[in-house]
Design a protein around this nucleic acid. Structure first.
Lengths: 249, 249
DNA sequence: GCGATCAGCGGCACG
DNA sequence: CGTGCCGTTGATCGC
């Protein structure tokens, strides 16, 4: 395909707010938050109407080079190559240059789409469901306001147990690692200082790594295994108490 | 475009290890780690030779539905729609069904590409550079990374200061938030317990949020502002000591 | 707009 | 293989 035709096609697509796909052999250069070079190879370039700019190789899920929504895309005939540039200034100045040396295809499409994804099984959804069934965790647990105590990030669920102690509950939709325990520990620490009372911390997840469990126990926190099913409607399938509090350290 | 022709084209592309692009109006359903529904709209489907399966809407960087490398892709004429399915069993059973009701384009391409990205400015690179210039952080700091202290999760750099105290240094390539402080605090805590001596913790980043700085100071940790430039070769531009130790808590 | 956190995170490196 | 953690993380939500 001819470069100047290709340039026209891309420019026109950009102008009309169409999705533009370019396949060809290219080099890529990026300079911004980091910097990168990619030597010649066949790639797919996707340019979306919102400025999204994706350079895909033949494997892997993620684009090898990219620019998010809001990028300014321009084209230029640069000697024996067609240069497509995506530029951004918002977080900081960033530039991607794609130098096409040969083209397999340039196409553009009108994309009409008003639909939003409906997702089931998010952490938020699980926490909401659990809030309505706190007794499955422990008898006598009474929910407090869900997330209002701290402004700078706090536990998913706050509650009081049957003996009146404050309980911070962190829900994870997948295996909990060290970071999850660290996070809960921070919440418990800050809360107990703020409220000047002992606070329990419960981590709910379908699984926990060995290291995380060790650290959690050392910190006097608790883990409750919580499996769930997703099927149009996120549902809590069951749970298994595995670890009780060690009463401080 | 005709569905049965499209099916043939896609099947052939899959068979020959080509990149396949499909643009058309479709519905999408996903069931796996979570579940989702997406009603009709125009989308781009990218199928890579390694099984990568991406459904892109007209905006945003990330695919709205996807399957990673290793997915098994099949097609089926399903009444008045062309169904393209990506199935995976590896982490767990996951299925995406894309139902095309009309097609704008089906194309496939041979993709020859042996190049790897050269990236400059990664955290690892910054840490390595800093390791060779520890004095810019503080006079008398001596690196001791060869000890390879902990296996599972540890500070980027370990050193000893002029008075012989152990120092854990965490490098962040971007603004440090609460999580970065929490992470460093965990390292320092574990290390001081393990080594049975007081350990200093230094966080190096171009910026730190207010909350994070507050927490860091309360935990007796230190922050050193560390700017850098990336230009073909990651370079440490300068630094600014901002916060000194508060001598334990 | 900043900040904290989630994500079907993905990907990598190391044990 | 698990596990920790970085990422040009991106995207969302609350303030």
């Amino acid at each position: 395909m001819n470069f100047s035709e290709a340039k026209k096609e891309i420019d026109s697509a950009l102008n009309q707010g169409k999705l533009c796909l370019v396949v060809g052999n290219c080099k890529v250069r990026y300079d911004g938050r980091a910097a990168s070079k990619l030597s010649e190879g066949d790639r797919l370039l996707v340019i979306k109407p919102d400025g999204t700019f994706l350079v895909h190789q033949k494997s892997k899920m993620n684009a090898i080079n990219y620019q998010g929504p809001g990028a300014d895309v321009t084209t230029d005939l640069d000697g024996d190559a067609l240069r497509v540039r995506a530029e951004r200034r918002k977080p900081m100045k960033e530039v991607i240059d794609v130098f096409f040396h040969s083209l397999q295809s340039v196409q553009s499409f009108v994309m009409s789409d008003d639909s939003n994804l409906k997702l089931f099984g998010s952490e938020r959804e699980l926490a909401d469901l659990l809030l309505d069934d706190l007794h499955v965790l422990e008898k006598g647990l009474k929910p407090l306001n869900k997330e209002a105590d701290l402004r700078k990030g706090f536990a998913d669920i706050m509650a009081r147990d049957s003996s009146g102690r404050l309980v911070a509950i962190e829900v994870k939709r997948r295996e909990a690692g060290l970071d999850a325990v660290t996070q809960l520990a921070r919440y418990v620490k800050e809360l107990s200082q703020r409220k000047d009372e002992k606070v329990r911390g419960i981590l709910c997840a379908p699984r926990i790594t060995d290291n995380a469990k060790t650290m959690l126990e050392k910190d006097g926190l608790e883990f409750i295994k919580l499996d769930y099913e997703v099927s149009d409607k996120a549902e809590i399938k069951g749970l298994e108490k595995k670890q009780k509090s060690l009463e401080g350290y």
